[in-house]
Simulated assay, not measured.
Amino acid sequence: MPPVRPRHPWLIAGATTTLLALTPGTAFAWGAPGKSNGEKTETSGGQSGASIVSKVTYSGSTRGRGSGTQKVQPVGDWSPPACWYEPRSAQEFAQYVEGMYTDTVNTPGQHSYAKASVGMFRDEYKDGTYKNYNLGQKDKGNWWVSVRDEDRWMEPEAQACDRQPFWVENGATPPVENAVTPEVLAELAYNRIQLPTTKVTLTPAAATKVNLPTWAWLDQARFKEVSVSASLAVGGLTIQATTTAKPVSLKLDPGTTDAETYPGSGECTINADGSIGEPYATGKADQMPPCGLKYLRSSGDSTFKLQATVTWQISWTGSGGAGGDLPDGTFGDDQAVTVQEIQAVNR
């Protein structure tokens, strides 16, 4: 059975029960797991119970768009942020906390300790350290709150943004890591890039023969640059970033050691027109394919699992002329290849 996602994930991190209580030092996450967290092209920002989803919005080749696509996988140990901090206006923050307080207090069967804890949290921002959610300074700054990626909310990395909501004056830099910047937005967009499935065209197509060079290629119309843009606009702050993935090479793994690849490394680089490899044509029977493979034994009654993996070069641009590179990404597919013995007739 999958873990139960708490209705208010910001109440306590790593809880194993559905009865939650706000305790000092526990993580506050603004977004609710299972909600959109901004993965729609329109800004949500509305309430769902007492939870407000992320203000970051995405457009372009994002997750969930079309069939036959998959998310890019970073090369190496790097991964996009599992949590981050976003600004909220004083009015939005006040509405959120008041809604959360009312929802908790009025929930039938809610433990008195949970009600008291949420009341303490409310008092801190309404009548304690801050006065009435800083509504009197609403034009001078914003509240910053933590958000967890809805797909990674149970990971330890998602608990790292554990600072309670804090106030930042306009023009000041939030004193936390992963505060939303153009680069952080670019990294979040990276995690939403959708890449086309990597099914290479082979000649021969239906079945190849032992010791027969097999040509492989990818169509430039299908394997072209894809981009995702992420933006955030709240409280007078507007930032944006676009992350672009460009295909640069195709790696062929024949699925058996009894095979050779062309070139020998199995790495086929991209052509000037954006294609990878070259279609077989009449008259090329005596040529070696620029991208392909040759099987040295039959697959028998089974098939070999050919794995074709495309490497994508990732770069980004953002507000204020910012930009740079992010780790390369890959995405690959398996496809079955039948290899037959060449039949000879003895006379």
Rank of each mutant, 00 (worst) to 15 (best):
K126P: 00
Y133C: 02
K305D: 12
S117W: 01
S265I: 00
P182H: 10
G119K: 01
A205K: 13
G300R: 11
K126F: 04
A281L: 12
E260L: 12
G68K: 07
G68I: 07
S54Q: 06
P174M: 04
Y280C: 03
E341D: 14
T69Y: 05
D328L: 01
T269H: 08
E42M: 11
K224V: 07
Y113A: 14
G255H: 05
R122D: 00
Q340T: 08
A21T: 09
P279A: 11
T173H: 03
L20P: 00
P196M: 06
D149E: 08
E86Y: 08
Y125Q: 05
T107D: 09
G235N: 06
W30V: 06
R88W: 05
K115Q: 13
G64P: 04
D162L: 01
V105W: 13
S298D: 12
S44Y: 11
K40Q: 13
V53P: 11
L11I: 02
S61R: 03
T282R: 15
Q194R: 10
T317Q: 14
R148H: 09
Q287G: 04
S231V: 00
I52T: 12
E157A: 15
R297P: 02
R122T: 01
P3H: 01
G277R: 08
R347A: 13
T43Q: 13
T26Q: 15
K115T: 11
D258K: 15
K305G: 04
G277L: 05
P175M: 08
A206T: 15
A285Y: 07
T257I: 05
T62C: 05
G49M: 02
G235C: 03
N346W: 10
K71A: 14
T198Y: 00
T41E: 15
Q47L: 15
H8D: 12
V118T: 10
E341V: 04
S146D: 03
N271T: 09
A344P: 02
D334H: 08
D219S: 14
N191F: 04
T104N: 10
D334V: 06
A21E: 09
G321E: 07
G277E: 08
S265G: 02
V105C: 02
N346R: 14
V226A: 04
K55M: 13
P2S: 13
W312E: 06
V176F: 07
A158W: 00
A27Y: 06
C83K: 11
K199R: 11
G14S: 05
A207H: 08
P182K: 01
